[in-house]
Design a protein around this nucleic acid. Sequence first.
DNA 1: TAATTACACGCAATCGATTGCATAATATTT
DNA 2: AAATATTATGCAATCGATTGCGTGTAATTA
Lengths: 343, 343
Amino acid sequence: MKKSKEVTIYDIASALNVSPSTVSRALKKHKSIGKETIKKVEKKATQMGYRPNRVAANLRTQKTNTIGVIVPRVDRPFISTLISGIESEAKAKGYHVIFTQSHDKIKLEKENAKLLFNYRVDGIIVSLAMETNNYDHFLPFKDKDIPLVFVDRVTESLDTDLVVIDNTQSAQIATQHLIDQGCKRIAHLAGAQHRNVYLNRRKGYEKALLENGFIVEKKRIIELKQLSAEEGYQSAKTLLKQNPRPDGIFTANDTTAVSVIQCAKELGIKIPEELAVVGFNNDPISTIIDPALSTINHPAREMGEIAARQLLSDKKDSIIESSNIIKLKTELIQRASSTRIEK
Amino acid sequence: MKKSKEVTIYDIASALNVSPSTVSRALKKHKSIGKETIKKVEKKATQMGYRPNRVAANLRTQKTNTIGVIVPRVDRPFISTLISGIESEAKAKGYHVIFTQSHDKIKLEKENAKLLFNYRVDGIIVSLAMETNNYDHFLPFKDKDIPLVFVDRVTESLDTDLVVIDNTQSAQIATQHLIDQGCKRIAHLAGAQHRNVYLNRRKGYEKALLENGFIVEKKRIIELKQLSAEEGYQSAKTLLKQNPRPDGIFTANDTTAVSVIQCAKELGIKIPEELAVVGFNNDPISTIIDPALSTINHPAREMGEIAARQLLSDKKDSIIESSNIIKLKTELIQRASSTRIEK
DNA sequence: TAATTACACGCAATCGATTGCATAATATTT
DNA sequence: AAATATTATGCAATCGATTGCGTGTAATTA
């Protein structure tokens, strides 16, 4: 198999007896090049099978038209939808996406940040690993003025743009909803408390309780490291053995909410009559579980799109050096798992 | 905000009074460089905050250490897991991944192929768009001897490596299972028949029927364009209104299988007693639906890993110019939706 | 001591496209 | 007709790292 040689603008140039600069400009339809020449060059280029070498162009222009993405892992509904949004928006603006996974490990997150930097991406979008508690690996980006946007799992410590939802308010609404449905003993399955999203969801839960004259009871709050199905199931067991038993549970994600429902079903506890459940994320599984799960809809795709838009918006123009915190709206989706009172 | 200047090997060189080539080699721990010098250079490099410019290196070496990926869309369990596998394996071999989505449109697939080519990726992995029926946009890769691997939704027409599962056999096993459970009238929700995966699943379905002395009835096979939940629901309605009604359904994916179950439940049809259902993919929803869905487990992550491994394996060494078709094993996961006879 | 080998490093070209600064040719204005 | 503007194109440096080839010095061998 013969590998055909790379065709460059030099080849086109000599075939046409013009200079490489003319070819370069012609291919960009630069106005200083004659119409005839442009046509000639374009024709020859396709005829010779020319393909512009972006690597060379990138080196010269100091721009790669590529953005890097670091997420915990792509095989989760929220993240894959988020990424899909990022990719769509980036593509619309002529950018490509290099994505990497941290697998929720700070070590991998650091490595990825380094590699993306070395690839000279024009910006990066990050959703932090569960583990991450130090943010120095992002400093080189700040130092070089490379746009950096955090999404969902964020930190404010770097003074960058943030795209988030109002976790506190969402959780408060979810909890208030349980209260409105007549729940008296509401438990909460929380996530790692050093991650803003889970901390705020817990805060919202507590806020709702307090505003309604309930007390916050420690034994009704369980913090889970990963919010996995297994953890959810175990915690549900613990909670549902309590006496008196919780009659409502708000969980920090849908995965654990589903586990709660499954566990309750096994124990013969009726949902929503004896136990009302509200999750968070509006994952596909929330509509499949029976009874369907009430949950908070997280606008994943929009978050991705906005993050990309924010990243690629030309900040240089504006004199204001603001670090925006963009908060997107969520909505409570009420389904059977929490509907005791008909609307 | 002052953007700090790029530090290059030239800067390190002049700071140390050595040549750039020495710095370059020292950073690579080239054996022809003295130990002392290597240490000096490394120290200075970190001290000056040097970050190698991969773009420049890529241009010079004609290698980008990047592989491109084109998939229909990432926000599906199978695909996101596949990608996760690709990324993990690629990373382990020092490669990065640029991924793109075709959204099941050939036009986008073409654009993506072009862009990835222009970025001079070292190889690409593709899972075809639903629409794609012409493969010329991949010829430039073949022409330049850039490794090209198709996964799952493949074509044999380009004589490349393929990573697939045995769809025919899997479908046959699934259908045979329904027969073994006593089903007499087995229907099939099929996917677009010009895509190998769906064609073969249908073939396997038919094969099982014929081998058991059943006849293949057209009215029991419905071809769906997208295999979406809505399509699945509508088709289920159609099938379940037939007289006599099917007592078993094998669907080309889990999404539609779940729709079938939901539809049947609404119609008061008992599963699995009156209707046994088997899906395909082993998506998360298959364990959430009640009754749990029997399905074919698709080794998504392994497929991604193997595709990447295959792509990056050094073919140059081997004299044999084989285009491998790697077939991975699947397994039938029997759950309640099809269990009439206790094992 | 002379000759050979090993070691450590520098020179300069190269990868392919871009672009500021000429320059030549033609067109327009005065 | 001379001066100026416009149009079309070329020259050559540049982006930053890599690498084949060459060379000077020190170490080893005959």
